[in-house]
């Protein structure tokens, strides 16, 4: 039984073109699903739709987002926000912009627990301390008193991970959480996310453009092009033999340091033309349905 189940989700720019085209995917408790695609493919848009933080210029035109069996889109806005706030969390891309530079770390972790979930200050503080220990930050007391600029990029990302897990969420959306970090720190952070996610049995949606990362972190993946899922596969099957020509080309574009002649091939124009034709056919079919 999946915890998050997205059914035929369509999203468009208000009065403009579609951004997501009937996206469906499932994530079970303790499962990790990767969302991959080029920039603009709509992978972050899915995460934003789930968390109810779509930009105001964008609207949902159809479909369902089932969270623990309840369709979020069917709830009144206030209930929807409460439900998402109590059960979901985000690990953002850039830890420096996600943390407020003029506040110490402690309130940035505990405010949500106190103000929204009604914890006491002391309980929230103790929880924050435990979490910082759990994400392997040395001297948590000092970190709680520190300002973001006093910490390194890797430490800041650890704090955001701790913060995401603070209220024991059922679902976490990680939006390119390591693109701002260098490879050695990326490895530590991915290890930490996997470890925390497995221990807490959290469902995780992992947005990235790096198939190397997907092969290490995820069990399932959805490959997106122009807001359409072109392939939905188990990770082991996908890397053994991608089914869609576009996802195969994306895999061929991924560099491999062990093989200097492979990788780094741009997606061929013919493949792009073919997948664009698929998108056009989808839109035409939708227009026909609309007219009928």
């Amino acid at each position: 039984m999946s915890y998050l189940s997205i059914r035929n989700l369509s999203v468009r720019l208000k009065g403009g073109p579609p951004l997501l085209r009937r996206v469906s995917l499932d994530v079970g408790p303790g499962e990790v699903r990767g969302l991959v695609g080029e920039s603009g493919a709509g992978k972050s848009m899915i995460g934003k739709a789930v968390l109810g933080i779509l930009p105001p210029s964008v609207e949902v035109t159809g479909g369902e987002i089932l969270l623990g069996g309840t369709d979020l889109l069917g709830l009144p806005p206030k209930d929807r926000r409460r439900r998402i706030g109590a059960t979901c969390a985000l690990i953002p891309q850039d830890p420096l912009t996600a943390l407020n530079p003029s506040h110490r770390i402690e309130p940035q972790i505990t405010d949500r627990l106190v103000n929204i979930l009604g914890w006491t200050r002391a309980a929230a503080r103790a929880r924050a301390r435990d979490l910082l220990e759990e994400v392997h930050l040395p001297d948590p007391e000092r970190v709680l008193r520190a300002y973001p600029h006093e910490l390194s990029g890797g430490m800041r990302q650890r704090i955001l991970i701790a913060s995401a897990f603070a209220a024991e969420p059922k679902l976490i959306v990680a939006d390119e959480p390591t693109t701002a970090l260098d490879v050695t720190v990326q490895k530590q952070i991915l290890k930490l996310i996997r470890e925390m996610q497995a221990r807490h049995g959290t469902a995780l949606v992992f947005v990235t453009h790096d198939l190397g990362v997907v092969s290490k972190v995820c069990q399932h993946l959805s490959v997106l092009y122009a807001g359409m899922v072109v392939e939905d596969a188990r990770v082991a099957d996908f890397f053994a033999a991608p089914r869609h020509a576009y996802s195969a080309a994306l895999l061929a574009a991924t560099p491999k340091y062990t093989d200097p002649d492979a990788g780094l091939n741009p997606v061929p124009d013919a493949v792009i033309d073919a997948v664009r034709a698929e998108v056009a056919a989808f839109d035409a079919a939708k227009a026909r349905r609309g007219a009928a």
Binding site: T184, K191, S215, K216, F239, T258
Partner: peptide, 17 residues
């Protein structure tokens, strides 16, 4: 060596994490 080993190859069978 650390830098090299930190790169995730697009291959689920590579032991990494």
């Amino acid at each position: 060596r650390d830098l090299l080993e930190a790169i995730p190859l697009p291959d689920p069978s590579q032991p990494w994490l």
